[in-house]
Amino acid sequence: MTKSAGSRRHLPSSPFNRPPLEEPPIECYEAGDRVSHDQFGLGRVLAVEGDNAAVLVDFSGRQGRILSPFSKLAKL
């Protein structure tokens, strides 16, 4: 039985070590920014709550409150 590549152990001295997993920086939005959401489509940021903790977005007449870290939201 063979092991899959994802379960293999990496030696510390190996030149092929995987880089440590780093979280991508959280995107900062401002009122008026055009955005695209994976589920809701295109929209415009109406307001930013707190220190970028959430954004209120208008998606063609339907408003949605998107919470940080905004994984499904992209700035256009």
Rank of each mutant, 00 (worst) to 15 (best):
residue 9 R to H: 08
residue 55 V to E: 07
residue 8 R to I: 11
residue 38 D to V: 14
residue 28 C to L: 12
residue 49 E to P: 00
residue 11 L to F: 08
residue 24 P to F: 03
residue 6 G to M: 03
residue 33 D to F: 08
residue 57 V to T: 04
residue 20 P to V: 12
residue 52 N to H: 14
residue 43 G to Q: 06
residue 11 L to A: 04
residue 38 D to G: 07
residue 20 P to G: 06
residue 15 P to H: 00
residue 12 P to M: 02
residue 8 R to C: 07
residue 26 I to K: 14
residue 8 R to H: 09
residue 66 I to W: 06
residue 14 S to L: 02
residue 16 F to P: 00
residue 4 S to I: 08
residue 34 R to L: 09
residue 40 F to E: 10
residue 31 A to T: 12
residue 32 G to H: 08
residue 22 E to S: 09
residue 19 P to Y: 01
residue 26 I to W: 00
residue 28 C to D: 09
residue 33 D to H: 12
residue 11 L to D: 13
residue 59 F to E: 08
residue 5 A to Y: 03
residue 63 Q to K: 15
residue 8 R to V: 14
residue 66 I to S: 02
residue 56 L to T: 15
residue 14 S to E: 03
residue 32 G to L: 10
residue 48 V to C: 04
residue 35 V to Y: 02
residue 59 F to R: 01
residue 45 V to C: 05
residue 16 F to Q: 01
residue 13 S to T: 14
residue 12 P to Y: 01
residue 45 V to F: 05
residue 33 D to E: 02
residue 12 P to S: 05
residue 57 V to F: 02
residue 66 I to C: 02
residue 5 A to R: 12
residue 21 L to C: 06
residue 64 G to P: 02
residue 58 D to Y: 10
residue 24 P to Q: 14
residue 58 D to S: 05
residue 8 R to A: 08
residue 20 P to D: 14
residue 18 R to F: 04
residue 51 D to Y: 03
residue 26 I to N: 03
residue 59 F to Y: 10
residue 59 F to W: 04
residue 52 N to F: 02
residue 44 R to V: 15
residue 54 A to P: 14
residue 4 S to E: 11
residue 59 F to C: 07
